[in-house]
Every structure is written in structure tokens, then in C-alpha cells.
Design a protein around this nucleic acid. Structure first.
Lengths: 111, 111
DNA sequence: CAGTATCCCCCTAGATACTG
DNA sequence: CAGTATCTAGGGGGATACTG
């Protein structure tokens, strides 16, 4: 980000604008949906997979790792057998709620 | 959309959830940025290209056509030489303002 | 000015199999 | 259960050249 207090009007996006930055965080094919479901509360890997639907294990893992790296999702591993892993939103991830939820509402209101 | 009045909590995304639908509209690599700039007002093709920055003509055209098809952007052609084409948000496109702008803000507040 | 028309690379994402 | 490993195709997107 070049200037954090810059106004949006006449914003020069030539090399990286805020929207571009945001889409890098949630632009992955499944990330929006994953975040959406984590907003319902903490979820285990399997639960998440079931809810997201057609996502493959590989992709779910990959996107979750990226979300984790970006600090939007936290991963909690329980050292038990069988494995137990819980995913939840970080505070930073929570800040996306006003973005994700209007997305959902917007999509519903304009079919 | 399966049920337009369904609550978001416990929403079953198995085959297409609202967030997924929304991301299909604005998920293109440049669409968010294009919409962002059109929110500043009507723009000509060249102006848009300059503002979006590194986008190629081909991609800008392609994404604009998709946005047009999805009913988010309207294209107005003036029958003059040299050509003059103006792009602007449709009412439907305007409904994305509360989604796009928080994106920008969110990206700025959480670097 | 505002586009098409080609060509082509690469990365995303899917399918499948295996494992601590 | 919650992952890795490997292989592969498909198409999204880039570069470049041409045009009404």
C-alpha cells in the first residue's frame, strides 16, 4: 500500500490498488466460501469439506494454508489419534465479515 | 440460488452458495479494480486502461464484456471518428459499492 | 481510439493414490 | 481424520500485430 490515508477518489491503481490487494486475499476459488462458513463458527477440516461441497481435499488444504499465511484463519491442532484440527477466523479474518456477508446478500438480491 | 429467503447460518453451500455466486461476478483478475474505478464515475476505454495500469487491451476488453453480460456495466458507443466509448455502472453494478468499497478499506486497514 | 486476431505459456485446480 | 505426493488438462491471461 503506497499511502494508507489516500482518498479513494482519483486513486492511482497503476501498481497495486486496495481492491487488488483485497482480491489477492479472498480471490482464490474457494476462499470466499471457506471464510463464509468459518463465520458460522469454528469448524473441523471434515466439517468444512462437507459444507464447501465439491472442493477436493488438496484444494481445501491449500487454500486454508494460504488463508493461514495471510493471517485470516487460525489452525489449531490437537495431538490425538485420530487427528483433530480446528479452523477459526482470526481477528483479522473477522474484519472481512462486512465484506463477505454483503457479498452474500448482494448475490441474493440481484439474481 | 436455491432459496432466496434462506438464513445464512447453517446455509448449505454444497452446490452454489451466495458468496460463490458473487465471486463469479467479481472474481476475474481485473474486475474488482475495474468496478472500483467505475465507481468514480463514467470512464472511457482509454481512461480505464490508464487507471487500471498493467492490464492489457485484450484483457480489459474481455473483462468489460463479461461485466456487461452480467449486467454490472453498461457500454455506450458514440458513432464518431475517432471512436468514443463510455463505460458506466448499471444500477445492479451500483449495488456492489457496499462490497467493493469495504474491500478497499479493509485492505488499507489491515496491511 | 477502441478494439480483434493469433499464438502460447503457465498456473490453478482436478483426479487419484498413499500415509502418520 | 487430516492430510501429502504426483500427474495432468484446461483455460485464464500475457505479448504482439493488425484494423474499422
Amino acid at each position: 500500500m503506497t499511502d494508507k490515508n489516500q482518498r479513494f477518489e482519483n486513486y492511482d491503481c497503476s501498481q497495486g490498488c486496495p481492491v487488488e490487494a483485497a482480491l489477492e486475499l479472498i480471490g482464490g476459488k474457494w476462499k470466499g466460501v471457506i471464510l463464509f462458513h468459518l463465520m458460522e463458527g469454528t469448524q473441523r477440516f471434515g466439517e468444512l469439506k462437507k459444507q464447501v461441497g465439491t472442493v477436493t481435499q488438496r484444494m481445501l488444504t491449500k487454500q486454508l494454508r494460504e488463508l493461514e499465511t495471510d493471517g485470516l484463519v487460525s489452525r489449531k491442532v490437537f495431538a490425538v489419534v485420530p487427528p483433530h484440527v480446528e479452523y477459526s477466523l482470526t481477528p483479522k479474518g473477522e474484519t472481512l465479515r462486512p465484506i463477505i456477508m454483503p457479498c452474500a446478500i448482494g448475490a441474493q438480491n440481484t439474481p
